[in-house]
Amino acid sequence: MNLRTIPFSAWIGIIGIAIAIFCALFAPLLAPFGEREVVGDVWLPAGGDFLLGTDNLGRDLLSRLIYGARTTIFVALAATVISFALGMILSFTAAVTGGFVDQFFSRFNDLMMAVPTLIFALVVLAVLPQHLWILVLVMAVLDSTRVFRIGRAVALDVAVMEFVEAARLRGEGTVWIIFREILPNTLSPLLAEFGLRFAFSILFLSTLSFLGLGIQPPAADWGGMVKDNKDGIIFGISAALIPGGAIAALAICVNLVVDWLMKRTSSLKGGRGDA
């Protein structure tokens, strides 16, 4: 693979993601003001000292946006990584072991997926105390059902191939079969799936925050910022649209990259060829 084969749309996505991650990493250096610092009047228009204006409490919107990138990206990423690890381990175990284990995991997964993710999250978050790690865990567990589903399908595709049977006949253990025979052949589709889940996590986290169930104030996060500033909309103040646009832009960027990854893998029957 070389850089020239990456299409223009994917470049846009990659650059967008890079900018967001850069902001997240160096937020204190980049932000002109503090995350929770009240610096002026409520809902000042953009321009002057405040590049994007101020929010409903008179905090600098740009600074909060930069800090918000940090929270949003890290929480979404943490949730995605955990959900992926969980979903992959369970799905690969199910696919390789087969029989009762597979049936049990799969039926339980069907049950979890019978309730829409958001509804499930609402029910669970109504009971649990509000902590960041609980939020991440709930997001991860709910999302892992989707990962399980894809992971199992992908692993089964590979697991029925004869080289896996050959490894079994040799007497190889489950761990070898999963990590040495199956995983290397499923990396491409799984990478695309990871991107898809990450985009979904960003949207899901933002939605929860928007509903007041995600990240709690005064910490800045993009979904919460929309909620904070939504009352301004009726007065024609667009402060809520800026973090909303940031969420949309980041999700679009991730999806652009995913789209490219998927197209690349779809021409890869059986995961061969781009070693």
Partner: peptide, 26 residues
């Protein structure tokens, strides 16, 4: 394809407030 890809990435509340901003307020 491009438009639908973008549309999939938009959070519901963003679309909602965008519509309110223009159709109801402006």
């Amino acid at each position: 394809n491009v438009i639908s890809l973008a549309a999939i990435s938009l959070p519901e509340f963003f679309i909602g407030y965008l519509l309110i901003m223009y159709f109801a307020v402006e």
